[in-house]
Amino acid sequence: MSAPAWSRRVALWDEALAAVRSYFRGAGAREVSTPVRVAAPAIEPYIEPITAPPGGYLATSPELAMKRLLCRGSGSIFQISHVFRRAELGRHHAEEFHLLEWYRVGEARYDAVQRDVEAVVAAVFALAGRAPPRRWVRRDFFDLFEETTGVTLTGSEDVAGLIAGLGAGAAARWLPLAARWRERGGGPADPELARLLAWTELFTTWSDEHLPGWLDRQRAQGAGGVHVDAFPEVLAALAERERADGRAIARRFESHVLGVELANGYRELRDAQEQRRRFERVNALRQWHGQPALPLANDFLHDLESPGLPPCAGVALGLDRLLMLATGASSLAEISLALGSPVPAG
């Protein structure tokens, strides 16, 4: 399908923004708008912020700012924000995009935010005139991993355990860096850091080589929407961890629509010490890769300590990707409202 005409694009964005707002207001959430320029972005291993001189960054996500509002009693909130990630350029990537992010306050809201994803997808598909996914399925990461690779993992594995589980012969392909340390040394001294890196490699390889085919098969059977749930605990990011059925998992899910990754959700981590440890570990990983360490978001960490984050679940959804999918476009550029020459890449 060719890119919609400009007038159509303008109408689409107008209708999509209105539909999203209408949905969340109807669900009792308040809309917020937090600063785009921040002193300390969320620290992620492979997300590079764009600096905003004289000292600061363009937000890579509104997560920390929104959680500070949650700590102060905002109740359930949502936001449609502009976020920036350096050097992410591709058909499904842009350095600047719209993140739709929301939080439902309360115990056991994890399932509810997955229903939100399905409802928002349906609403935007409907206004674009395209049939939304007929069916959604939810699968735990480790079940899916076993189904697609034949390898059984529990999430507790350290680097040696992962390599043993994958088989020594296959490990070099799965974990290019971690397998190399095993042969020649040179891995991070901190075993938890090595473990984070190895699991990230595993997830990257699996997402690239095994998940797309499985998603295609689901789609062929009418399940255009998939929540990959219960991530390995090491990949918890900002989600809570737990032991469930002998597995070490994070209450984190990723939603895929028509084969495209669209949203990422958590039952939110509320433990300030644990959050600080994770930020510090990710910073160590960044430095190990030769990327600059990022300033710790101390204000956010203090708020987690006191007044504290209420029990809640949250999701971040790529709104540009959703419009792309809903219109049948194949790249973000086809639905973008950006006119003129592109801004030079960061």
């Binding site: 492979y46 992410e88 997830f203 990257t204 997402s207 690239d208 990949l235 990754e261």
Partner: peptide, 12 residues
Amino acid sequence: FQFVKPGKGQGL
């Protein structure tokens, strides 16, 4: 050249 990136994974 093609850039892809699974959620919070490494860029490929």
